[in-house]
Design a protein around this nucleic acid. Sequence first.
DNA 1: GTGATGACGGAAT
DNA 2: TATTCCGCCATCA
Length: 92
Amino acid sequence: MRQIPLGYVATYGDVASLAQLPGHARLVGYALHALPEYSDVPWQRVINAQGKLSLGRAYPGGDLHQRHLLEAEGIVFDANGNIDLKRFRWQP
DNA sequence: GTGATGACGGAAT
DNA sequence: TATTCCGCCATCA
């Protein structure tokens, strides 16, 4: 995840593949759930394949925090609160 | 030991 | 395009 450049995002599936675990997107999500808040890992750059934030499922309202962090990095959200993957998805 | 669940994804309908 | 269903496997009750 630390490979994700500032200003870009990656999906859970992408991170799983990068970790040589294709098809194990759920484990990535589970791993993030276990991350401490003070971690230096840019967990906010990982979103689901629909271009939406999934943090809301674990911490109600927490997606607002994530959105703020991403906006501070230059990510733009559309009117529906989604991210345009065609434009911001990190493609190595 | 067992079954249910989840920061998901992709195929099927 | 929108829903639903199933596979994935570490955790937890």
